[in-house]
Nucleic acid binder design. Structure first.
Lengths: 191, 191
DNA sequence: CCTGGCTGGCTAATTGTGCTAGCTTTGACC
DNA sequence: GGTCAAAGCTAGCACAATTAGCCAGCCAGG
């Protein structure tokens, strides 16, 4: 009997792809095994448990998203960088809703969990966007959280079909980014 | 054998409370039955399925949240109304994370699903907040989506322990609201 | 009263899913 | 060619959702 030739990385990748297709909550070990042409218990040779699989998908997602943001903002600043980062984030969540959901739900399991540096790099990319606005250092953390909340909220609502009619969603997104950009430029006035 | 005296409404309420305590994904029929002092299959006399239960919890959550927003914004306008609505929303999600998650995940099952009016009332409350800013009508939908995305994103990230250190979260929230308020007041400049 | 039917509980059993145990085969390396 | 870890498999357990079908309590009408 020929071997399937799997490894932890390829199982994780396949799991992430499947989660994007069917939704994270519909991702089962059986379905993934079927997709890989293997029986369910065989997956446990590569992955400790379903929780472990989800964790690996989460790390993959955070890493990919961090990379996407870094690439998108390379060589840009202020409004340009903000727009590029926002679009990259929205695009990633739209194309990879399952992965992204996994990334969101994951908690680090210990102090040397690779999820932590992956998350750090993601935050660093967003921080880099804000750097161009030369905020008061005491406001950076607030701006970072605001930016993250906004992008996260919009993207998750969108993929959950949270916006009633699908009209003008692109326009709404651009409008929201413009509002944030405007706000970041007038930041001293915010107390 | 004495009866437990349940009804669909009380089962839903208990399910919502339990979801808030243990997390929506940990809510099982067995756990809920145990909480109600009843065996699992008995729940099916009051609720069609687990999916039905979640749907009922979702409707409850949307209704409650809509009420909370309406109450919070009564008699207020502009900055005042915005702040009150934002706080009410954040508070609700913090106190009822399970319900809120159920409300988010739910999709209407048909054209006369009570979830639809419940959602409408929620959106109407947020719309009312924006009315005070006298936006250009073409921008109302964008502002509404922005507001919803922002509040949703912040609150969900917060309950998911998405903010690394818990310091200054209140401050970040206030800062974000101030930025939105400022943006809504200078809305003509956003093209 | 008391009695019949509806209601809301129960037990038993089915299915699907995560997971473990333990066996077998492949294939890489000596 | 022998050996041994890796990677597959079958069998089977545990637990969650659900269904079927039984029985007790309660309430209205005689």
């Amino acid at each position: 009997m020929p071997r399937a030739g799997l490894a932890a990385a390829s199982v994780t990748e396949a799991g992430a792809k499947l989660a994007d297709e069917v939704g994270l909550d519909q991702l089962s070990m059986g379905l993934l095994a079927q997709r890989l042409g293997v029986k369910t218990p065989s997956l446990y040779k590569h992955v400790e448990s379903q929780a472990d699989l989800l964790h690996r998908i989460a790390i993959l997602a955070m890493t990919e998203l961090g990379d996407a943001l870094r690439d998108a903002t390379q060589g840009r600043a202020r409004t340009d960088a903000l727009t590029a980062a926002a679009r990259a984030m929205r695009r990633f969540v739209k194309e990879h809703p399952g992965r992204y959901a996994a990334g969101n739900g994951a908690r680090p399991t210990g102090p040397d969990d690779p999820l932590i540096p992956a998350g750090d790099r993601l935050l660093a990319s967003l921080s880099a966007v804000l750097r161009g606005y030369q905020l008061d250092p005491s406001q950076e953390i607030h701006a970072l959280r605001m930016l993250r909340s906004t992008l996260h909220g919009f993207a998750t609502l969108e993929v959950a079909h949270g916006f009633r009619i699908d009209t003008d969603v692109d326009e709404s997104f651009a409008w929201m980014i413009a509002l944030i950009d405007h706000g970041l430029q007038s930041t001293p006035q915010l107390t």
